[in-house]
Design a binder for these strands. Structure first.
Length: 480
RNA sequence: GGUCCCAUCGUCUAAUGGUUAGGACAUCACCCUUUCACGGUGGUAAUAUGGGUUCGAAUCCCGUUGGGAUCACCA
């Protein structure tokens, strides 16, 4: 039988990292076995609907190249793929379930949302008075226009068993199960019902979802059973955590996929990182393209325990991806950042080659290049460096030497500049660092920079370099 | 609270009864080097706890502790 999985998000806002990881696992389970991956929008809760979130879902999946085989935008044999458009299907099946004895009509008034007190909760199990209403009576009340819900009927005793690919065999007592609402007063189904009906109708073979659904899984199996349907393979996955106690959630302001992309992370790196958050290949390999993941993914290597999202490791991995980018691609991606911060005439191609091995996210560009735009304020103590054997006096002397030397250079390239200054050092019996270290300070006002002194000079161009050296010499003279 | 689930370095994890408990990130040291970064080498660092079972336990069983989930006309 062909493997079919589905990603079934609610359009309630941004794409969370945990959601994306679930989607990835669903995608990989299908694609590793030549199966289908479908997209279904679960918008049965009109109150939580957020405008535009469906597009975010589409766009996110597209940017990470997780293409779906059937979905709201492209259709398929099992449409529609938006639950609010499947209303009549659920109603048909819900009433059918009542006939089959798996559910009953309930006329209890809608619960007051204000009431939070545990004691005031309507105990749904055994005490639902509507369970005792005969089918004929119930139908008559409905015909009379009385509002109703359809509630699951659970009469089974004993313990329910089911198998989960990640957690193994789970046992839950039927007494623990609530007779939840399946079809709401508004005629729309709850997740508990829509999910089962859709997964069956869409031929879903593997259901991947958060482990918070483990305890309600027996309820879903009861519905499958009542209809005579075959339940899917269950793959419950642990949550992605912010820290040991809290799940990662947008609600707490934790980073969403979009946020990370805006912070300068590459979609491929994010996807690679989250793939490994709760799954491992059984080898030491850590860098995976989506294609590679498709080849080696197996649900057996999914982990049972929650994993803390570690931005530091993601940052490292992003650095790996940045370094592996073709130089032109890096330059292309860096360009918008340059345009944002740098307005002076600079050798941007050289800047890119200097930056590529050094930055870990594109947002690092700002702090790495600020001095190119404008010399920062700095203190003369920067010129003193024990290892480089420099101090203010040495700097005064070597900057003057460097100035006259550089003024003679016409082919303004890093190699040329470097060779020239190296020869200058030899000629004056100086260490390279005694010329180059003060030069970097003079050009950047910083103790450390991306790239060496001559690279900075090459990026800045001859005029600006000469000008900055002159200013530095003046500063050294004045403040003596 | 009832029920279910989870527990290896700070973090992500490997080791499906026999390993000096391995790798990666982070961290520290050294090397490379015009600073920084990259790269290289090495170091620090873990089986929550108490009992079993076994010749032998991170691994199997029970208890304890800690954590999470669930008990909605949300998903």
């Amino acid at each position: 039988m062909k493997v079919r999985t589905r990603f079934a998000p609610s359009p309630t806002g941004y794409m969370h990292i945990g959601n994306l990881r679930t989607a990835l696992y669903e995608y990989l389970i299908a694609k590793s076995q030549g199966g289908d991956f479908l997209l279904r929008i679960e918008d049965t809760d009109q109150k939580r609907y957020v405008e535009g979130s469906t597009d975010i879902i589409f766009n996110t999946l597209k940017t990470v190249h997780m293409d779906w085989d059937e979905g709201p935008d492209i259709g398929g044999d099992c449409g529609p793929y938006i639950q609010s458009e499947r209303r009549s299907i659920y109603q048909e099946y819900a009433h059918k379930l009542v006939e089959l004895g798996g559910a009953h009509y309930c006329f209890c008034a809608a619960r007051d949302d204000e009431e939070e007190d545990d004691e005031t909760k309507i105990p749904t199990k055994f005490k639902d008075p509507c369970k005792r209403i005969s089918l004929e009576q119930a139908k008559a009340r409905i015909a009379a226009g009385e509002p109703y819900t359809i509630r699951q009927t659970i009469n089974k005793k004993g313990v329910s068993h089911f198998h989960d690919e990640v957690y193994g065999d789970i046992e839950i007592d039927y007494d623990e199960l609530d007779e939840g609402v399946l079809l709401k007063t508004d005629g729309l189904p709850t997740y508990n019902f829509a999910n089962v009906v859709d997964d069956h109708l869409m031929g879903i073979t593997h259901v991947v979802r958060g482990n918070e659904y483990i305890s309600s899984t027996p309820k879903y199996n009861l519905i499958y059973e009542a209809f005579g349907w075959v339940p899917p393979v269950y793959v419950h996955v642990p949550p992605v955590m912010k820290d040991a106690q809290h799940k990662l959630s947008k609600r707490n302001g934790d980073a969403s996929f979009q946020d990370l992309v805006e912070k300068g992370y590459l979609p491929e790196a994010i996807l690679n990182y989250i793939a490994l958050l709760g799954w491992n290949p059984g080898t030491d390999q850590e860098i995976f393209s989506l294609e590679e993941l498709k080849k080696c993914f197996t649900a057996e290597r999914l982990n049972k325990s929650p994993a803390i999202f570690d931005i530091v490791k993601l940052t490292w991995m992003n650095g790996c991806y940045i370094r592996n980018l073709p130089a032109e691609k890096f330059h292309e991606l860096a360009m918008p950042h340059y345009q944002k911060y740098l307005h002076r005439e600079l050798d941007l191609a050289l800047l890119s080659s200097v930056l590529q091995p050094r930055i870990e996210t594109f947002n690092d560009i700002a702090s790495q290049t600020d001095f190119l735009e404008k010399m920062p304020e700095y203190g003369l103590e920067l010129y003193t460096n024990k290892k480089m054997k420099t101090d203010v006096e040495v700097a005064k002397k070597t900057l003057a030497l460097a100035l006259t030397d550089l003024q003679k250079v016409s082919d303004w390239k890093n190699d040329v500049l470097f060779e020239s200054l190296k020869e200058l050092a030899v000629a004056n019996e100086l260490k390279n660092g005694q010329i180059l270290y003060p030069l970097r300070i003079a050009l950047s006002g910083k103790e450390t920079t991306s790239g060496g002194a001559t690279e900075i000079a090459a990026i800045l161009g001859k005029n600006e370099t000469i000008s900055r050296i002159e200013q530095a010499i003046q500063k050294l003279g004045n403040e003596k």
